[in-house]
Design a protein around this nucleic acid. Structure first.
Lengths: 146, 146
DNA sequence: CATTGAATAATTGCACACAACTTAGTTGTG
DNA sequence: CACAACTAAGTTGTGTGCAATTATTCAATG
């Protein structure tokens, strides 16, 4: 066992990249990336919302989202709209094509759930809870929380 | 709770980015990134080795490692050497400066261990084991294992 | 010995992440 | 109203990840 395998952080880093590669494989026929898929998931669930709200949910800033959303717009998956009452805000709305993808990509959650190799829903929930606690704890070390 | 928070993959993705930001914070005084730090950890532990071996341990290909190592070389942390007996192979050796950093960065493992918020070594080991199983399972979905 | 095939790094192109900065629009205060 | 402070999104620059390709070297085979 190599030294890095003793580290929590490396196993996290490694698991995330393996997961992203698995999503890339599943999403390739639609030319989507994992972060783009996450945007669709949020839009399917919560509907139209601002770039800021999207960034809060996904923990991504405009430096990441702006070009990502531009690519999704060019694929006709989302539509950008300026809010009349506050011209600073841009809302991101799913297009009819995005609704179609909700059906076409319906197989992905179960495919990924199976690919995790986790035995049951309970262990998945446990892992999620552990990771969320870790994320919160890590955030405390970051000065940007001030 | 947002929809993405119910997903194992998102909690992984999120935890990894939180961890990388925490490392970035700690490593900033030395101008190092987390992947660069990982290379140092491997070199400190196992000493000089080829780009391939480094890539096997960190699960990174030459497309990622080549420019990363070039940056580390320009910071005088590593030295590239062609192997005489096989001119295809490039070995990466830590410089004296890298050895210095081993001492200067000695506080980081415990700082990160504390920042994870994990209560004890046993729960850390458990999480690592779970993540390694998940990484392996995810790999099976990837055709590149063939 | 010449040719072919495999191995090893490096390069190229694309898509994130994220810090730092810019631009445009809004709000609060006098 | 004037204007500073704030906010939202976009832009820029750097550093990964990773697929695909290229260049070089080595090894095996006839």
């Amino acid at each position: 066992m190599a030294i890095v395998d003793e580290m929590v952080c490396f196993s996290l880093y490694s698991a995330t990249r393996a997961t992203t590669r698995a999503y890339a494989e599943l999403l390739a026929p639609w030319g989507l990336t994992y972060p783009q898929y996450l945007v669709l998931v949020v839009l399917w669930s919560d509907g139209e919302q601002s770039v800021n709200e999207l960034g809060d949910l996904l923990q991504l800033d405009s430096g990441t989202l702006s070009p990502l959303l531009r690519r999704m717009e060019s694929k006709l998956l989302i539509e950008r709209k300026r809010v009349h009452s506050d011209q600073r805000i841009v809302t991101i709305a799913p297009t009819p094509r995005a609704a179609e993808l909700r059906r076409e990509l319906g197989h992905i959650p179960s495919a990924i759930a199976h690919a995790t190799g986790l035995p049951d829903l309970e262990s998945a929930r446990e892992l999620i809870a552990t990771l969320q606690r870790l994320t919160t704890a890590m955030g405390e070390l970051n000065p940007k929380d001030a």
